[in-house]
Amino acid sequence: MSATTALLARRLHRLKREPFNVTFTLSQPLIWLLLYSNLMRKATLPGAEGVPYPTFMLAGVIAFTVFGNSLAGGIPVLFDKENGFLTRLLAAPIPRSSILLSQFAYVSMLTVAQVLLITGLGALVLGARIETGVPGLVAILAISTLLGLGLTVLSLALAFSLHGHGEFFAIIGFAGLPLLFLSSALVPLETMPDWMKFAAWLNPMTHGTNAIRSLVIRGWEWGTLLLSIGVIAAFDVVFLALGLRALRKRLA
């Protein structure tokens, strides 16, 4: 068994010992979907006229979920660092990348499970169907994983670099809701003042949302898809470069 598989297995073993934790984590996005959909039920959204709000919101909740999971991706490693386990790992003859890969694989598995749950229940309960069907769902999962890659590495780099979990949670807590509001997740960009539109365009959540939203409500719009995926990939490259540089300092 490779080091990556062994470290991933450790995380999965933990899941079965923490059923409450799993239940809350998995159901969190459902709560978002239910609350937002009903909160904004009567709003008319420019650029999405005639689209029921739950259907419009589906993409936003998925992108927000990816953000939440990925930015929290460093937390288990943060605790490993604080209780000495990480030192022990670093003294073991394992590739340094296995620490990152196992955590990315874990975050991605969690994201895939949540996206399947949201889209499944969204369709059944709220009638939010995906226009592009099952192939579209597969594309949504791929986009979600791509979106999560850079963010997970960024979170891991933070976990390695910061002094303790207090600082980490302060940063994540500070960034979370602004990132949500400064994106197209809840409302189309067209409804925002120019400065917010600009800030939102610099937010990968916007591009994740746009790509997924086009698949959910309109169909295969290759132009939108390629542009959004290109921007997400560019963010990944930047985050990976920044993150790996910070990690290399710690993982000598």
């Binding site: 062994a6 209780n83 386990f85 022990r88």
Partner: peptide, 28 residues
């Protein structure tokens, strides 16, 4: 080399065997 840090590092959500298997895998 073997290294045992001063902190208690065994994963408390795993059994003893699961912890040992993890280290067996990490050390090949």
């Amino acid at each position: 080399l073997g290294y045992v840090p001063q902190e208690l590092t065994a994963d408390v959500y795993l059994t003893g065997t699961e912890n040992l298997r993890l280290f067996a895998a990490l050390y090949g």
